[in-house]
Amino acid sequence: MADARETESRVAPPEPEPELGPELLHGAPVTTARGQRVAHPGRDQLVDLVRTLRGEGWIACLDVTAVDHLKNLGDRPRPEGVRPERFEVVVVLLSHRERARLRLVVQVPEDDPVLPSLFAVHPGTEAAEREVFDMFGIRFDGHPDLTRILMPEDWIGHPLRKDFAVGRIPVEFKATADAR
């Protein structure tokens, strides 16, 4: 008897792209990804937006990280008016009052990887921005101490970039003459 439980896959297909309607958050288009709100401010808007949002109750900045979209440039679904660039810096905000999270996604071009620092608004981003600088080479204007944080100070390159190769240790198997 065939086991009914293993017949059909329940993996949901990717949600249809949400209506890119007129919803704007202080001028930044807002989309929904897997039920989570994502705003897409421009580089110049970012600090002002975060400062305005802090006044509205988004008082905690929990994370600043980045994604290198070298391998899927261009074909990412982004709201109208937002040009996909190689780097995306992701800022996670939390409102204790609304019990909600908000993600800000900023496009950062490859030839000019600079972003204004959020340190003046949320000093807790200091270490996170240092890590983004260390791992992706994105510089933050106005950061008090933009140095490498995880890698050694004399390290060359930015490891989480997609064009930074994964380390490899040659392994010799006695049984096989040729390396695979």
């Binding site: 949600e15 990804a33 989570q36 994370d63």
Partner: peptide, 12 residues
């Protein structure tokens, strides 16, 4: 492995 639909998510 299994394929995962495109997208991004933050879970805490």
């Amino acid at each position: 492995g299994f394929k995962v639909p495109e997208g991004d998510v933050y879970v805490a």
